[in-house]
Structures are given as C-alpha cells and as structure tokens.
C-alpha cells in the first residue's frame, strides 16, 4: 500500500486549554523527497509530526490521508496507513520492559509481517547499521541516550514504511549514526518503497544536507519554502492558508 497525499483542511490543534498551535491550517504536505519541518521552540513541530503520524488528532478541521479524514477513521480502519508510517521519537518511545532487540522485533511479530528468520534478519541488519548489536539484549534504561535514540530511529525503519517521520533525529546521535540514517533513507527509498520523509531539526546544519525542501511553522500556519540550502530555506513559495 502506498500513501500518495497528506493534507490539512482548516486544521486546528492545541494542547488542552492552551492557545492553539495551529489555527485553521489548509495545506498539502509536499510529498516525495525529504521535508524538513522548521520553526522556533514550542511552535508545534513535534505536534505536527504526531498529527501526520495519526498519534494526535486535530481539534477541528480535517487531516486527510489519500483524501480520507483520519478523524473519521477507527483505529482498525487507520491501521493499514499506520503500518506504512514509521515514527522515530525525539526521546523515549522504547518499551522499558523489552530489550532493544525485542523492541525492534515487536511490530514485525505483532503484525505477522515476516517469518521469524526473515524478521530477525531485518532487525539484525537495522541494528547493525547503527552499531547496536552489542547492546541488543539490554533494556532501554541500561543504555545511553544516544543508543536509545538510534534504536528508536532504527525501529521506525523496521516495517519498511512509505512515510518516515523523525522527530529531532539529529539530537543525541553521533556522526556515524547520522551517516547510517542517511544511508538507510537512501537505500529504503531506492529499494524498499520509502517515499516521503518528514523530520524536524533544531537548526543543525546537517539537517539541510538531508532536506529537499523546508516547511516552516509561523504564526500557527504552515509555509512552504523551496530551494533550501546549507544556509537555510530560500524563497517563500506558498502560504499555508
């Protein structure tokens, strides 16, 4: 199953009683390629990624995947889409009572996606790419933050997603792991059906190396910038609303 379009229509979102982070966004997320979501602290970068992954629901308006409103879908109706979306957390997100190996095996085993041997081979390949095999039998609390972060990103690749969403992937990762992540994005795009990548950044220059384009969050709206460069986004091309 491929995911072709991701769009918002009059989307309003805010946490609890706080002021809305997004106030009526109508915007088609740029698909294909790698999209950096840029914005200051607290503007809603992580919230946007979670909405894209279906982890948060807009308060009003619609989030449309292939034209279908996610808010209208029950968990099981959204499941086929969810299985095609890989999500890497900025921190946390690993199951504390499972080893790193079991954390990566869980989605494959739960969804009976592969036979045991094939699943183990895939997990071994991903853990090997990030140099995690030495820690495979340790639980998240017994490893460093960098290892946890790498494991969380590796798990995002495990179901060979069509949409990859990474929240602050560069924070806490060493240079080798960042290179491994770039390599996995490239190889999954070439041969494993990865189509759309969305990620946030705290302004690390390396983020522009991965980005094909930039979506900025300003004043509760989304803006598309084209021609991103190492210095940052270029000319503003479209307005979010």
């Amino acid at each position: 199953m491929k995911i072709g379009s991701l769009a918002f229509k009059d989307m309003v979102f805010g946490y609890g009683d706080h002021a809305p982070l997004f106030g009526g966004v109508t915007f088609e997320m740029p698909c294909g390629g790698n999209t950096l979501v840029r914005g200051g602290s607290g503007v809603g970068k992580s919230a946007l990624l979670k909405i894209l992954a279906g982890l948060l629901a807009p308060k009003s308006g619609a989030y449309l995947i292939d034209g279908r409103d996610v808010r209208e879908m029950a968990f099981e109706e959204f499941l086929p889409y969810r299985k095609r979306i890989g999500y890497g957390f900025d921190y946390g997100g690993l199951l504390a009572n499972r080893t790193l190996w079991d954390n990566l095996m869980l989605p494959l085993q739960y969804h009976n996606e592969l036979g045991l041997d094939a699943a183990e081979e895939r997990v071994q390949e991903l853990m090997g790419a990030f140099g995690l095999m030495a820690f495979r039998d340790r639980r998240p609390a017994a490893v460093s933050g960098a290892i946890r972060k790498a494991a969380s990103i590796a798990r995002a690749f495990v179901m060979r997603p069509s949409v990859l969403i990474l929240d602050d992937p560069f924070v806490g990762l060493d240079r080798e792991s960042i290179e491994a992540m770039f390599g996995l994005v490239k190889s999954h795009r070439e041969s494993h059906g990865l189509e759309h990548v969305f990620f946030t950044s705290r302004g690390e220059s390396v983020s522009y190396k991965l980005a094909d384009r930039v979506v900025a969050i300003e004043r509760g709206l989304l803006w598309l910038d084209d021609g991103s460069s190492a210095a940052g986004p270029g000319e503003r091309k479209a307005v979010g609303q």
């Binding site: 979670k50 992954a53 279906g54 982890l55 499941l79 969810r82 299985k83 979306i85 999500y87 957390f89 921190y91 946390g92 997100g93 690993l94 199951l95 504390a96 869980l106 989605p107 739960y110 969804h111 798990r155 179901m159």
Partner: peptide
C-alpha cells in the same frame, strides 16, 4: 515514557 504512543505508532 511515551511507550503508549510508541505502541500506537507501531499499529498496536
């Protein structure tokens, strides 16, 4: 620890 969110993200 966001484990609940992680389960949802994995389709569980």
């Amino acid at each position: 620890n966001r484990e609940i969110e992680a389960l949802e993200a994995m389709g569980i």
